[in-house]
Amino acid sequence: MLTADELDRYGRQIMLRGFGEEGQEKLKKARVVIAGGGGLGSPVAIYLAAAGVGMIRIIDHDRVELSNLNRQILHWDEDIGRRKIDSASEKLKKLNWKIEVEAIEETIAVANVSHLVGDFDLIVDAMDNLPTRYLLNKAAIEKNIPFFHGAVYGFEGRTMTVIPGKTACIKCVYHGASTPGGKFPVIGATPAIIGCIQAMEVIKYIVGIGELITDRLLTFDGFNMKFAEFKVKKDPNCEDCGHLGGK
């Protein structure tokens, strides 16, 4: 049951066709884990908190650095040197005190990924490297948890939603490919755009409305301001999800 305060706070989205108080109740009950509290994690967390997702767990092992501030908008000058999870959870609670925010300072690895994400309803990929994305993808499939992928580089972004057993996973698309590591170039607006798309996907999934970015990789070229789609199929030989069958 929504309170009068919640009906007021979320009134503009409750007005949306297919959303209503029922949709808001679903958001209130939802538990979303955001893996990464940086460039992508910031906009994802901000918009999910503002929308009233009831429980957000944010995982990050880094501390805020000056070089983060061009894009990681949850972190400000005054936060330099602080743990990102502390900076993030403080801002999110200030934005919306009605929700619960849990901050976990851990490095996501084979040994702990299942424990970190296993009891959540949805997993958002806001990582800065492909190997950890593959860990999260695999855990999502094993636990049957929808997975919301995003990645950025420079002016470019990629995003896709994975419904385990039903749609292509990121291993079906990337086949375990790696990319050069280290510092990468990026303008802050790129993760803002991709992160907001991920947040939109999460909200639509929870509420049960709209069409998801499934079986297609959405590519964003901010330099030429173009979105494109790349159709993908669930790979029956995929090492992560091939055993689940499906289309």
């Binding site: 800065d128 990645a151 950025v152 580089y153 990468f184 790349f230």
Partner: peptide
Amino acid sequence: GVVMIIGGG
């Protein structure tokens, strides 16, 4: 088309 896989976040 050519799509580059990217990994930043």
